[in-house]
């Protein structure tokens, strides 16, 4: 009941936007721009013949693979760069140069290296999400409070224990923040990457719907589905933030 009350204002805003959209389309008698209802029927049509689920599945698979590889790569590297000063000094400038390059700029190279199969978008997603996670993890190690490191030093624990019970858990909240950013960027990029080539995915759905007969109802349906799935993915990452082991960081 309380959740509903909180969500009410945004539900109203969405209803107003949809209402305006509908009114404008009807008033201008647009032949090509769909009404909300046409978007709904278009979506149902796709859902019924099963292609919608294929597109969603393809996009999610690519994000899962690219983001997963990026996580496996970024977290150990970020921890290492955070802990070992020499690694930070050496690698950080390289990543700072690579980081601002838009993943879209990598598309020609990705096609050159990986062709037009699944590997290209997976590579682009990897490139897009790996840097924010490295940066965030490194920053997390750098901001571990001195009092905790001192306490660990005082008890003279072995390096492995220091790492597993102090450095890693102290950095975990930042790692999760990095993962949230990384997954958000990954989802942005998969759609862009799929617009270039391939025969599946939500990005492909949008471009293909336009090219194959100006089905703008499906274009908009694709956009809305992308938004909703992005919201869900972020919701999953938020669940990580509610783990007891990291709550100390987000609670205040």
């Amino acid at each position: 009941m309380k959740g509903l009350k909180q969500a009410l204002p945004s539900i109203i805003v969405i209803a107003v936007v949809v209402g305006l959209w509908w009114a404008v389309v009807v008033a201008t008698q647009s032949a090509i721009f769909p009404t909300p209802w046409q978007v709904v029927t278009g979506t149902l049509e796709l859902a019924r013949d099963g292609t919608l689920w294929e597109h969603i599945g393809a996009s999610l698979m690519r994000v899962g693979a690219g983001f997963g590889i990026a996580v496996l790569f970024a977290i150990p590297l970020g921890l290492w760069m955070g802990w070992v000063r020499g690694a930070y000094v050496t690698l950080n400038p390289v990543f700072q140069i690579l980081r601002p390059i838009s993943p879209i700029a990598w598309i020609p190279i990705a096609i050159l290296w990986f062709g037009v199969g699944n590997a290209s978008p997976i590579y682009l997603i990897f490139i897009a999400s790996v840097f924010p996670m490295i940066v965030q993890t490194t920053a997390g190690v750098h901001t571990i409070e001195k009092r905790f490191l001192r306490a660990a030093e005082n008890f003279g624990v072995p390096r492995k224990k220091l790492f597993l019970q102090v450095v890693f858990p102290a950095t975990l909240p930042e790692i999760i923040v990095g993962m949230r950013i990384g997954l958000g960027v990954a989802w942005l990029v998969v759609v862009a990457a799929e617009m270039i080539a391939l025969r599946s995915g939500l990005g492909y759905l949008i471009i293909d719907s336009r090219n194959a007969g100006n089905r703008y109802d499906l274009v908009i349906a694709g956009m809305i589905i992308i938004g909703l799935i992005g919201l869900m993915l972020d919701g999953f990452m938020r669940l990580l933030e509610s783990m007891k082991i990291v709550r100390w960081r987000y609670a205040h």
Binding site: R147, F148, R150, A151, N154, F155, Q165, V166, P169, A170, L172, I245, V246, W248, R249
Partner: peptide, 12 residues
Amino acid sequence: VLITQQGSVFPW
């Protein structure tokens, strides 16, 4: 063992 004002019990 040093015990300080801010404390250093690991919150995690």
